[in-house]
């Protein structure tokens, strides 16, 4: 029974995590949350952006239609990067958020190692490791399963929110 369990993918995953955590040099501090690289707002130059509001394409609009979504699409003209945002009911919030996303993506391209997203990801994995180290094996199993579920749910949510293509009719 024990031998069988040790082949289950979950515990295999744990051995990997443990060894990974163990090999990490213990002296390196986790980047502090308030010391992360700032949001790279300076990368946004309004003149370089082409902004579109996608609210169901053609049709009469105005008083005849009552749309609830307000999707914003930004194209960064120099690089051709395209981002969309529609998380909020407020067009103003979507415009702001879309610019933040675009700035992060531009920084990732220009400075992959020290970008805000890179440090954020590093921090996330270090926090995870140190948590794993602290707790006992049983707790770790539960925790990791939870984290895994959460991550999967988040990925699904994100894919649904951002991932659908723009030629889909709204």
């Amino acid at each position: 029974m024990f031998a069988f369990r040790s082949y289950s993918p979950v515990s295999a995953r744990f051995r990997f995590l443990r060894s990974f955590a163990g090999s990490c040099p213990s002296g390196v501090p986790i980047p502090k949350k308030n010391k992360l690289p700032p949001r790279p707002k300076w990368l946004i130059v309004e003149e370089e952006i082409d902004e579109k509001f996608l609210k169901g394409g053609r049709g009469p609009g105005g008083q005849k239609i009552n749309k609830t979504n307000s999707k914003v699409q930004l194209t960064h003209k120099p690089t051709g990067l395209v981002v969309t945002c529609q998380y909020s009911r407020s067009q103003e919030s979507n415009r702001k958020k879309a610019r933040e996303i675009l700035a992060l993506k531009l920084e990732e391209q220009q400075n992959p190692e020290n970008s805000r997203t890179a440090v954020l990801n590093l921090r996330k994995s270090m926090v995870k490791q140190s948590k794993a180290k602290k707790s006992n094996k049983k707790y770790k199993e539960i925790e990791a399963k939870r984290a895994e579920d959460k991550e999967r749910r988040e990925l699904e949510d994100r894919a649904l929110l951002e991932g659908f293509s723009d030629d889909e009719p709204l």
Binding site: T68, N69, Q86, Y87, R89, L160, L161, F164, E168, L170
Partner: peptide, 15 residues
């Protein structure tokens, strides 16, 4: 019925 695509429906439910 109000949002014939799942993404939009999901958003409304989220709100």
């Amino acid at each position: 019925r109000a949002n014939p695509n799942i993404s939009l429906a999901k958003q409304e439910l989220k709100w």
